[in-house]
Design a protein around this nucleic acid. Structure first.
Lengths: 229, 229
DNA sequence: CAGTTTATGTAATGATCGATGCAGAAATCG
DNA sequence: CGATTTCTGCATCGATCATTACATAAACTG
């Protein structure tokens, strides 16, 4: 099985000015608008008419630049990953212990998913909440499914590294612990979509780390480190 | 704001034979088929043509019996609540302690959401995963949002009762604990949709109860009671 | 039986769906 | 400059969308 639309862009990465008439709109800006609409309404419920309205372009321009509705969604997913998903994992990556990494992931998720960064973006994670696969678009479904699996893999590998480094014993069930963390993060997206506040999700993160401590050995102090205002 | 389609049925509850030509199909059976399709594909991605195909009826019969696509979805939600949701909460309701109740809810959810009861139904919870609200149907969105809020309320009230009965001290943050449990259960639906097994979700339930114990005081033995094969 | 009432099947409604044909506009190239 | 290439706006494509007339069928009522 090979995909028929570009995950990484194909021709538009050409940096220098092309030959014909130049594009009259900012491709990334328009993609950002499309991403937000897909993010909020989902793939099936978003029409081309809706898209060209928020993107401020005509449909021929849309198809010339992105190929198809599926292609646009695939690019919107990539755009999301670069702009938002990466940010939610930054502190996870930078943490020195697995526990700090997971705690940072959950606390940063609590903030990001509830739009607490002065954003106007939709609530919850676009990848987590995407149902494009169930809506009958197998290719897009595989795309988001892979992205979600990647998150689990990242946590799992971080925990394996922690075992190798002696942060906790090999008796800890790394896969179960990783899935537990991801399940909570997934649930946070649904909670955020229903209006849960950052503080409420941070409390969930704290309780999650209590479960962590009960499993791998408790530390002193609060379950998670305090955040900057 | 008042709803324009029936949550509880209106005329079809009449038990005795009516006056005109009798309906040629089993209303509940057809509703069950519609429910499964909505459950799997969501509201927006399910067309009337798809529905009448699986229901085995013509579109005039559908509209005569259910009023509209939204009305059919609302009834499908009710049908789901009666047939599946109630079952997932039975042991929760019957438990003698709040801890047993929550553990039962999570363990039963792990089984129900992964289709481990010999079912052919879609994976995950129809109510939890419904995005009808975001898809532009405010009335249906309010319906599923209310159903989801009801789950949180049930757990919260059970915990309050536990405090009143002295199962654990009043220092426990009942709201946070309830939201923690519901967040995990919500996450389980997304995990199940992505193919997580019953055993994997049961491990998540175990870890969740570890977090519980860390918060309200630990008990001996396994975090959750064993299930029957 | 005729009359009423409700359901069904066929076929069609206007609207909207995703996607394009086409002519002109705006750039580069020779 | 003309030739070529690419993009844009307008109009439109056939398909599908949710919904409904309409005629007929099947029950009950009197």
């Amino acid at each position: 099985m090979q995909k028929s639309f570009p995950t990484s862009n194909e021709a538009e990465t050409a940096p220098a000015r092309g030959r014909g008439r130049p594009r009259a709109f900012d491709r990334e800006a328009a993609l950002g608008q499309a991403m937000q609409l897909f993010w909020h309404r989902g793939f099936a419920a978003t029409s081309i008419a809706d898209l060209i309205a928020v993107m401020g372009i005509g449909s021929p321009s849309l198809y010339a630049a992105f190929g198809s509705k599926e292609g646009l969604y695939a690019e919107a997913l990539r755009h999301y990953g670069e702009r938002y998903d990466a940010k939610a994992w930054a502190n996870f990556m930078a943490a020195t212990t697995a526990r700090e990494a997971v705690a940072a992931l959950l606390m940063d998720s609590a903030a990001a998913l509830t739009g607490s960064c002065g954003r106007v973006e939709p609530l919850g994670c676009m990848v987590t909440l995407s149902a494009a696969g169930s809506e009958g678009h197998a290719e897009l479904g595989e795309l988001v499914r892979t992205a979600r699996a990647h998150g689990l893999k990242r946590v799992e590998e971080r925990l394996r590294r922690a075992v190798a480094e002696g942060e906790f014993g090999a008796a800890v069930d790394v896969q179960a612990l990783a899935r537990f963390v991801l399940t909570v993060q997934n649930g946070m997206s649904l909670q955020a979509r229903d209006g849960a506040s950052r503080e409420e999700l941070e409390a969930v993160a704290e309780l999650t780390m209590s479960g962590w401590d009960a499993q791998v050995g408790r530390r002193t102090g609060s379950a998670v480190s305090k955040r900057e205002p």
